[in-house]
């Protein structure tokens, strides 16, 4: 191989684009020819210099956000080992699991917030509030299966009167109530049970009539939002989506119980 050939082929050699025969010939030439070896050395140093990460321009966040899918971001941000189980859980297990979720929560709550949409942040708050409520002794401020105990308990604690219904006949017994905060305001949280699962129902007054997508899945929880009679409702639970839908229907349609 002549030096002219080598000058031509040194780049393909660097890029590992030569066939075996050419590659071997090139290696032999570089051993014998100091000038070509020096040229090879310079170019391989140049290659290394160009590999510095500082030269790579990553897409700015604004662009990335514009193109990030609406649903999958939060899901993929959650490490798979922490995906919630749907099987019935004992309370202790639920609390432990909630703790595990909380450990990962900075990641996914940030991921949820990043999308910016107001309704999404409300859902994210509802999810984290639900998770928090499952931790020991955070679930209920007033423990009662009697709506006539739960409803008066909220008096003086909120600037509105929440609708409280017992849905035991529908398979969703009321077990208590709690004060909570969502979207920067105090809200009423009613706690219902479905077998061993907990359902949190948040409500607060709203002016808007807009009802966003009625049902979303977040980290294994089902969240259903609706607006009725000037009240905004969010129901969240790890029961199956069908069960939660049934709960919402029962709550909305139960005309037998006075509000």
């Amino acid at each position: 191989m002549t030096c002219d050939d080598a000058q031509l082929l040194v780049h393909a050699y660097l890029d590992d684009e030569l066939d075996a025969a050419q590659s071997a010939a090139m290696a032999r030439h570089l051993q014998d020819c100091a000038a070509c070896a020096a040229s090879y050395g310079i170019h391989s140093r140049l290659r290394k210099a160009l590999a510095q990460p500082g030269l790579y321009h990553r897409a700015p966040d604004a662009l990335r956000e514009r193109w990030s899918p609406t649903q999958t971001v939060a899901g993929s941000a959650l490490p798979t080992p922490f995906r919630p189980r749907r099987a019935p859980l004992a309370y202790a297990m639920a609390a432990g699991f909630a703790g595990a979720l909380l450990l990962t929560s900075p990641a996914w709550i940030t991921a949820l917030r990043q999308r910016g949409a107001e309704s999404n942040s409300v859902v994210a708050e509802a999810v984290s509030s639900h998770v928090r409520s499952l931790q020991a002794r955070h679930l209920m401020d007033v423990v009662s299966t009697d709506q006539h105990t739960v409803k008066p308990w909220f008096e003086g604690k909120l600037d509105f009167s929440p609708r409280v219904k017992d849905l035991a006949s529908e398979g969703f017994p009321l077990i208590g109530g709690r004060l909570d905060a969502i979207d920067g305001r105090s809200v009423a949280a009613l706690i219902y049970k479905r077998h061993l699962h907990v359902i949190n129902l948040y409500q607060w007054p709203t002016d808007s009539l807009a009802t966003a997508q009625p049902e979303v899945q977040r980290h294994g929880y089902t969240v259903i939002r609706w607006t009725a009679e000037g009240m905004r409702y969010i129901a969240i639970s790890d029961v199956s989506a069908a069960d939660l839908k049934q709960f919402v229907l029962a709550f909305r349609n139960d005309a037998g119980t006075p509000p």
């Binding site: 790579y56 321009h57 990553r58 897409a59 700015p60 604004a62 662009l63 990335r64 514009r66 193109w67 990030s68 899918p69």
Partner: peptide, 27 residues
């Protein structure tokens, strides 16, 4: 396609040599 966003922006940035132009190109 979405995982290639960085690659797309990198090429656009090196071609346009400008932050805002590169974003326009990628968009």
């Amino acid at each position: 396609v979405l995982p290639c966003l960085d690659a797309a922006y990198n090429l656009a940035h090196w071609l346009a040599r400008d932050h805002a132009d590169a974003q326009d190109v990628v968009q």
